[in-house]
Design a protein around this nucleic acid. Structure first.
Length: 316
DNA sequence: AACTCTGACAACCGCAAATCT
DNA sequence: GAGATTTGCGGTTGTCAGAGT
């Protein structure tokens, strides 16, 4: 971590914006300001909150660390799985992946990917050269926006004894079909021969007859087109604002932190950007054959359907 | 006990798009 | 319409802490 620069000056000795780690006092200032005034122009926030930080830095600090709706701690197996899948579809669009993972930031996901999953990829990349099976692209699901790496990712995770989540799944499932949720989809749509040969993985992943994530609005159950196109899950539906009202943020910040004691006041925050429902996408989701490569990502970002397996994020 | 390695993560940087003047 | 400013994103770096040697 960068140490806070106590001088508050730049290399020329001029009084300039602070850099480096945020001190607890700075965090408190920013938090108090945000709770009292809400989000406005970030340079104004920095100025008015009495912080010698640039607006950009304040924004980053708020989004990645201070935001009350953040869910800290390790990624759950479901989240890992979801990240993998979303990355296979979206690539390094961390912000869009994060938009589908409640309480997670793009930075967090990016770090997780770069530190954990990339290493697993390395393993498979080094081992795949000696494994003829992994090079047989004909048995892969259709490569959609980089999804060709998908099976390698998963296989790598299965090979990695440190994998906490993927390993929980039956390894042979992955060896036959790297992504059970998609396999099921493919099987349902008869998109590829091998898909039909393998029963859907239901025990660990909560597959239902209607698809991996439930009925419509899920990965499964008709979200794969006749040609095997993959579909991206919709954005989750819980609004940050509602989360504030119902969540005990102290519980969600297990890490000891200087401003944990501010959590009790967080519920009053009413100025967080709210994810809004967009009925238009619902219509797409239920009716149209929306395909990867065709969807308007901007539209998707506005949508808020939910993942059944992420129910614990939802506000009743 | 001391040193090295590695994972995790906070934060910075540069760029591009959006918005404002 | 042009330039300035702000915002958002993805890539990268730097540091701490724990594990391993």
């Amino acid at each position: 971590m960068r140490k806070p620069d106590p001088s508050g000056k730049n290399n020329n000795g001029n009084k300039l914006m602070r850099k480096g780690l945020w001190s607890p006092e700075e965090d408190e200032k920013l938090m108090n300001y945000m709770l009292a005034n809400g989000q406005g122009c970030w340079s104004d926030v920095a100025r008015n909150a009495g912080l010698q930080r640039c607006g950009k830095s304040c924004r980053l600090r708020w989004i990645n660390y201070l935001r009350p709706d953040l869910k800290r701690g390790a990624f759950s197996p479901q989240e890992e799985e979801l990240i993998l899948h979303l990355h296979s579809l979206l690539g390094n669009r961390w912000s869009q992946i994060a938009a589908r993972l409640p309480g997670r930031t793009d930075n967090e996901i990016k770090n997780f990917w770069n530190s954990t999953i990339k290493k697993r990829l390395k393993i498979i990349n080094s081992s795949s050269t000696s494994s003829p099976n992994t090079s047989d692209s004909s048995s892969e699901p259709r490569d959609v926006m980089g999804a060709g790496l998908m099976s390698q990712n998963i296989v790598a995770m299965c090979m990695d004894s440190s994998s906490s989540s993927i390993q929980a799944m039956a390894m042979n499932q992955y060896m036959i079909h790297p992504f059970p949720m998609l396999k099921h989809d493919l099987a349902m749509s008869d998109a590829s021969g091998y898909a039909n040969a393998v029963p859907p993985c239901t025990a660990q992943l909560g597959l239902t007859g209607n698809g991996f994530y439930g009925n419509h609005g899920s990965f499964g159950g008709g979200n794969i087109g006749a040609e095997g196109e993959l579909f991206i899950p919709p954005l989750e539906s819980v609004s940050i604002e509602e989360s504030f009202k119902t969540e005990d943020f102290t519980d969600r910040n297990p890490n000891s932190h200087p401003h944990d004691n501010m959590n009790s006041s967080i519920n009053h925050c009413n100025n967080i950007n709210k994810v809004e429902n967009v009925a238009e996408f619902e219509n797409h989701w239920e009716g149209d054959d929306l395909r990867v490569g065709e969807w308007d990502l901007e539209e998707l970002m506005k949508d808020v359907s939910s993942f059944p397996f992420l129910d614990h994020y939802q506000v009743d």
